[in-house]
């Protein structure tokens, strides 16, 4: 394990068994993780992306000691997640989010006080810490209201407050901005950055590509239980064939014309989509020489082409990787 690694996993596998049938005598196994190798550096924001059911939450729970791996080995902050779980738990924070996970009949402040005691926050600091985290997530005014009166967004903020209450060295954030309005989501991203400035390592799972792109130094894409890519956004764009994208839209392309597009200099990947009679070819481009006019010039028979040039986004990269894996 490199000295700066906050998380290191090797060959993590996890399968779930479900009993089915009239007498529950049939066991159906589902492999959620199929050998995950990962390394997260200390002090970075590491993003884990993947479609629903890819295994993101399973991996997060294994790393935060809430689930045992079926096979493999994982170390967090230099501690084994299975053998050293009691020593690891006070040093990490977990935000699973959602509507559930809070004591609804009591106030936000009482929820935090309860977890402060479970995490051993020094009694003398407890009240101050609660006030501080409530302020950081913007819940000061609602601190003494019952959680059952909270909106989904407010509950999400309270989850985050609970996650950072004991000042963890590493924070697992499972879709932290889900259910938040744009202003609150932006404030949450600001909070995440401020935590990193305080020296906290962040392990973030999200479905929002712009969020991952804005926050994360490195991103891994998990699909069907496997990490299919793990790099910076720039590195990932190289992986899918370039940081520039050209979209060519028109009608009635024949095979020869498609072949011309595919063979244009610098084109590394060509995707095809239909919109009724209209067809779009998306080209991932490695060089800056290929421009809309040169594409237009290569297809002289098509005067009605609409060609757009843009930067390859993380969403493009993500979709390329996930579709490739599915294929």
């Amino acid at each position: 394990m490199s000295p700066s690694a906050a998380i290191r996993t090797h060959g993590i596998r996890r399968s779930y068994a479900a009993r089915k049938g009239f007498l529950f005598n049939e066991i159906v196994r589902t492999d959620a993780l199929k050998g995950v190798d990962l390394e997260v550096n200390s002090g970075e924001i590491f993003g884990l992306l993947g479609p629903n059911g890819a295994g993101k939450t399973t991996l997060t729970k294994i790393l935060s000691t809430l689930l045992l791996p079926t096979e493999g080995h994982a170390e967090v902050l230099g501690l084994d997640v299975v053998k050293d779980a009691p020593r690891l738990r006070p040093r990490i924070g977990l935000v699973l989010g959602g509507e559930r996970g809070l004591y609804n009949r009591v106030s936000a402040r009482e929820n935090l006080r309860y977890f402060a005691d479970l995490y051993g926050v020094p009694t003398a600091e407890r009240a101050g810490r609660i006030t501080e985290v409530l302020d950081r997530v913007g819940l000061t005014e609602s601190a003494d209201r019952r959680v059952e009166e909270f909106s989904r967004g407010m509950k999400q903020k309270l989850h985050i407050a609970r996650g950072i209450l004991h000042r963890p060295e590493l924070l697992f954030l499972d879709e932290p901005t889900i259910g938040l309005d744009p202003k609150s989501a932006r404030e949450t991203r600001k909070l995440v950055r401020s935590l990193v400035a305080d020296g906290v390592t962040i392990f973030l799972t999200t479905h929002y590509m712009f969020e991952a792109e804005e926050l994360c130094q490195r991103i891994a894409v998990l699909t069907r239980g496997r990490i299919v890519a793990n790099d910076t956004v720039q590195g990932l764009s190289r992986l899918v064939g370039g940081d520039r994208t050209l979209e060519v839209e028109g009608y009635g392309f024949d095979d020869a014309e498609v072949e011309v597009l595919r063979r244009l200099p610098g084109v590394s990947r060509l995707k095809y989509e239909e919109f009724g009679p209209r067809i779009r070819y998306t080209l991932r481009v490695r060089t800056s020489e290929l421009t809309p006019p040169t594409v237009q010039a290569s297809l002289p028979g098509h005067r009605e082409l609409a060609i757009r040039e843009r930067r390859t986004s993380l969403e493009d990269i993500y979709l390329d990787l996930v579709e490739e894996e599915a294929a």
Binding site: L66, R89, L96, R162
Partner: peptide
């Protein structure tokens, strides 16, 4: 889950 993930 959050209670079991606490050190106690």
């Amino acid at each position: 889950e959050p209670t079991l993930s606490a050190p106690t």
